Amino acid sequence: MSGGPLSPAVEAVTKHHRWYGGASDTVRIAGGVLYAALAFATVSGRQYLYAVPLVLVTLAGGSYARLLRDRGPRHVLIGLTTAVAAGDVFYALAPRSVGWAVSLVVLPWALGRLPVRWTEVFGLTVVTAVSAIGFLRDSTAVAFGLMAGCLGVTLIGFSVRTARRQAADIARLLVSERAARTAAARSEMLAERQRLAREVHDILGHTLSAQVMCLENALLLLDRDAPKEAVTKQVEQAQRLARAGVMETRRAVYSLRGTARPAPETIERLATEANAEFTCFGEDRAVSPEVALTLERAVQEALTNARKYAPGADVTVHLQFDEEGYGVDVTDTGAREPHVPTDTGTGYGLAGMRERAELLNGRFDAAPFGEGFRVRLWIPA
């Protein structure tokens, strides 16, 4: 799972640093070739005897530091020290050579790669060595010129260090952004799965369980040779429940699409169909589809449980609207008729109601109340 596209800023800076890394390798190779060419062009005669090995040692030291840079700063220090030492020896033996240029090239590289505690000693040693050679083998002006050049490239080195830190921060940001997008996508997927699971339970769990009860009653009546009218009544009831399930499915789809329904009318209809007493307190106000659906499902779950586990009980449904929020209270007086509970549910109903309430920062409570049972839901405005 990719977690979605990266932000344009992070993507642009990342591409820049990738390009910079590839370009820097090309520059280093070109610089090595140029140094070798100038080194051999500035010597003559017997100077070639030490110019060739010293140039090769310089290039080898730089290559060592470059190739083993990922194994730790110690390898970088060894490679750069070898390159500088070879360049300084070359400069001391041939004052007209370009051996001094190694120090100017290595200083910013070291400042960009080595730890701070190492760069201080390394930088001071390099500047002192090349300036001393210039003073002893050439002139005071050359020595001061080399010191000024070292100062300039030192500033470049600090800029390189800052750029590398920014690149590291960007790399961490890149990883963090990808992880955050992946986690967000997974969280959204799980939340949508839970939402669909609640809808499937609330629609199919209620209508199908009621249909099963009606059809089982119809079979029982047929086995007892009951009158046709009694059997037909149960079948018609199952048919009405099937139609109601289709309507519930359509309404759920509308809610999932963001189409709100009038909560009082819907809840009053549910109460009327269940022969429950309905009262509404407060002024009717428009509510979001999520709130309306949650109120409706809570009432539907409570009425279904009352029908299954407390047949013959008096059931009351109270709906409340005020400035602080919205609430429903469904109470039954307990079973008044003998019954054998049929396990037609999934056990997900009350848990689903509690999840719905928590998603809306509400409160859900379901507990015995006197001889009956009480379900309460409150959702803040």
Rank of each mutant, 00 (worst) to 15 (best):
I156E: 08
G312A: 08
A286Q: 13
L222T: 04
G79L: 02
S44C: 05
G157V: 01
A244G: 07
Y20K: 05
G4S: 12
V57I: 15
A218F: 01
T346F: 13
E199K: 02
R165V: 14
P108W: 07
L67A: 11
L256S: 06
K233R: 14
T140F: 15
A252I: 00
G372D: 11
A179D: 12
P262K: 07
L360E: 02
A9H: 10
R117C: 05
L360N: 02
S97T: 02
R164F: 05
F122Y: 15
V52G: 06
T140W: 15
D365Q: 06
V235F: 02
T316L: 01
L114V: 08
E358M: 02
A242N: 10
G32M: 11
E277A: 09
Q320W: 09
R69S: 14
H206Y: 06
R224V: 00
G312V: 03
V375W: 12
L59V: 08
H318L: 12
L208I: 09
F122W: 15
G334I: 10
L124P: 04
L136T: 08
L360Q: 00
R113K: 13
F135P: 00
I170T: 05
L34R: 00
G362A: 11
C280V: 07
G45T: 14
R96A: 14
T346G: 05
S139C: 03
Y64T: 04
E236T: 12
A171D: 12
V106E: 02
L293C: 03
Y35N: 10
V130N: 07
G145F: 11
L220V: 00
M353P: 01
E277F: 03
L270P: 00
N361V: 01
P5C: 11
G123P: 07
S176R: 14
N361Y: 07
R251G: 03
Q166A: 13
F369S: 12
G352L: 02
M353D: 05
S131R: 02
S131K: 03
V315G: 09
V76A: 14
L111R: 10
G45H: 09
A185P: 00
T232A: 08
Y64M: 08
A230G: 01
A367V: 12
S131L: 03
V76I: 15
F144L: 15
G334C: 08
E177Y: 04
S103T: 06
T331M: 04
G145P: 09
A185F: 08
W378R: 08
T346M: 09
G362Q: 06
E371Q: 14
D169R: 15
V235L: 14
R69G: 03
A366M: 04
R46W: 13
R307V: 00
L54N: 08
M247D: 14
H201A: 01
T42Q: 11
L220W: 05
E192R: 09
G352K: 01
H339M: 07
G327K: 02
E358W: 01
T342S: 10
S2C: 03
V175L: 11
E188L: 13
G282R: 11
K233V: 06
R250K: 12
K233W: 06
A185G: 06
A51L: 04
R261C: 02
E301T: 15
I29W: 15
L319Q: 04
G205I: 09
V287Q: 06
L173H: 10
A183Y: 03
D332K: 08
E273D: 13
